[in-house]
């Protein structure tokens, strides 16, 4: 069987975001990176890989998106699939989920899909459950821990009131949080070894998909960059100057008048 890990190439959160004229993220503007939370997904997928199994990293995106798969291979995935098609520019979550679901089907023997709980750019966190519904599979989301046990997947999920243990039958989609592990940066040996692993680039037609219909009626009509935060007032603490500045700020907002 195969574990598929879905990864996304996102603008580097350290870089300023650039929107193109059509108000979509200019994904060609800067060097991107593997979405931070997807590192946890790759880490989990590689740990959950059972004997004689493979981990296939799947991404959808423009040319540069291959870098996300490259990073997944460096972190231990065995193969990669890059779905790239001009018709996918600006794809919404429903289209994204449809493409990823088709890619999972194309793998043939997948029984588990691992995703990060959300991307660092879009951030809606709903792609995993949509992929599951499109495949007709179970979805266990926001896992802080994942275990495979026969034909079932067991996850631990932190809710505001309790830590819950959930069980779902395979095949299933799980999404993981950043409490699921601590992905390590790839070693140099792994970086060089990843160059030899196969990556398949496919378009929509190879996945048996037509051109996606544009989202019915949804249109971003304006995107305004927030006023940049004015440079911070920096106080180097000495002789209580830090505490004084802190208390002054709180007092200025009447937030110290407590317990009277």
């Amino acid at each position: 069987m195969t574990i598929v890990v879905c990864v996304k190439h996102v603008p580097d959160p350290a870089d300023p975001v650039v929107l193109a004229a059509d108000l979509r993220v200019d994904r060609e503007a800067g060097a991107g990176t593997l979405s931070g939370l997807d590192e946890y997904a790759v880490d989990q997928a590689v740990r959950l890989r059972r004997a004689r199994e493979r981990v296939v990293a799947v991404t959808m995106g423009p040319r540069g998106a291959r870098a996300a798969v490259t990073r997944a291979l460096q972190m231990g995935a065995d193969e990669g699939i890059v779905v790239s098609d001009e018709a996918l520019a600006g794809a919404d979550v429903l289209t994204t989920a449809a493409v990823l679901a088709a890619a999972v089907r194309s793998v043939g023997d997948a029984d588990l899909v691992v995703c990060g709980m959300s991307s660092t750019d879009g951030g809606s966190g709903v792609v995993p459950v949509l992929v599951a519904d499109l495949l007709g599979w179970a979805c266990a989301g926001h896992a802080a821990a994942v275990e495979l046990d026969g034909g079932r997947v067991t996850i631990q999920r932190d809710d505001p009131d309790a830590r819950r243990t959930l069980v779902a039958p395979l095949p299933a989609v799980v999404s993981v949080t950043d409490l699921s592990g601590e992905p390590t940066y790839p070693s140099f040996k792994a970086i060089l070894a990843a160059r030899r692993r196969p990556v398949r680039e496919v378009g929509l037609s190879e996945l048996g998909l037509g051109t996606p219909s544009t989202a019915p009626g949804t249109r971003t009509v304006s995107a305004v960059e927030a006023d940049p935060r004015p440079p911070a007032r920096i106080v180097t603490d000495s002789d209580g100057s830090g505490a004084a500045a802190l208390l002054e700020l709180l007092a200025g907002r009447s937030l110290l008048e407590v317990d009277r």
Binding site: A14, R229, P230, A232, R233, I234, V235, T236, D237, S238, G240, G242, A243, A244, A245, L246, L247, L249, L256
Partner: peptide
């Protein structure tokens, strides 16, 4: 630290010292 680029007041110092001073002052 990147947090200093995302704040209004940045205090460069040890949090234990700063908070101990603040607790004492309050």
């Amino acid at each position: 630290a990147p947090i200093f680029r995302a704040c209004d007041l940045g205090i460069v110092g040890d949090l234990h010292t700063v908070l101990a001073d603040a607790v004492a002052a309050v």
